[in-house]
Amino acid sequence: MRPFTFSRPEAPALAIAGKDAASRFLAGGTNLVDLMKYDVERPAAVLDLGRIAGLREVTQAGGTLRIGALVTNADAAAHPLVLAHHPLLADAILAGATPQLRNMATTGGNLLQRTRCHYFYDRQTACNKREPGTGCPAIGGVNRIHAILGASESCIATHPSDMCVALAALEAVVVAQGPEGERRIPMAEFHRLPGNEPQRDTTLGERELITAVEIPAWDYGAHRTYLKLRDRLSYAFALVSVAAAVTLEGGRIAKARIALGGVAHKPWRVAEAETMLQGQAPGEDAFAAAASLILRGAQGQGHNDFKIELARRAIPRALHQAAHATPQSHVEKRIA
């Protein structure tokens, strides 16, 4: 790790005042410290957020669930309010990483996770995300884990988070504080597609600090699932994951929300598919039609071609689980 200066600001305003392009906020450190060891992140200064009070609470007001930015992934997944009101979020968090990492990783940090693209991590290779303008060796290279949707000629990386896939499906809002005050960013606008600026993962400003995530009320209960398909049964990033929740009225779908992980530079959500499902009887035809809409324009890169078919099958399976109120267990691995 390269040397850096270290400080522990005691309030968000002090953290923001001390932040510049060459510094990084430290929360759980699971991704940042790792990237610093790989020399991918080289901050001149690290601003440790650990002493800031007021960012570790989970609260509920007016139906909205609010999770502080420094709430650990483990605490969020086990919190009674999360389990009672947004169990889909707990499911997604518990599908990711390990108990050790979830004990360290935070809500805010998880939102800012960087891709696990091999080339991004390897300073010996070119990478437009790490060093803009140098090229993308993943295109035509080893790209089994890469994007099938929303990729660009400069980057085919995927966003690695499970938590964010659930947050996208649940239409969460990221609350950020910056020099100009507080800003609320809908999940759909928080992460961005690579375009010709793959170095920018999110729309967060350089001096903005995430303070919380808010999830609007929606009572889907057991009609949800986080189906994660990966190379191992545990502790692996998603090849394809599907967060799905539905509510039924009179045997028909009243509302459906679906987001995919492992397939794009951001959690992938297609509102048209959700609208199409509204009013339909839950069944394989409707689910397959939704999958087609969600995967419209999907393009393989060679090694990851299988992801298109995998997603085409995973989406109906997840919708089936959600419609039948049989959420995927992350302990018993059998897929219902």
Binding site: F6, L26, T30, D48, P99, Q100, N103
Partner: peptide
């Protein structure tokens, strides 16, 4: 790099990967 768990210690009652924790924090 926080992948193998050999460095696991119990920090303030929670198991963590000590290799990813900056001691100063």
């Amino acid at each position: 790099h926080g992948q193998c768990g050999a460095c696991t210690v119990i920090l303030d009652g929670r198991r963590v990967n000590a290799c990813l924790v900056l001691a100063a924090s």
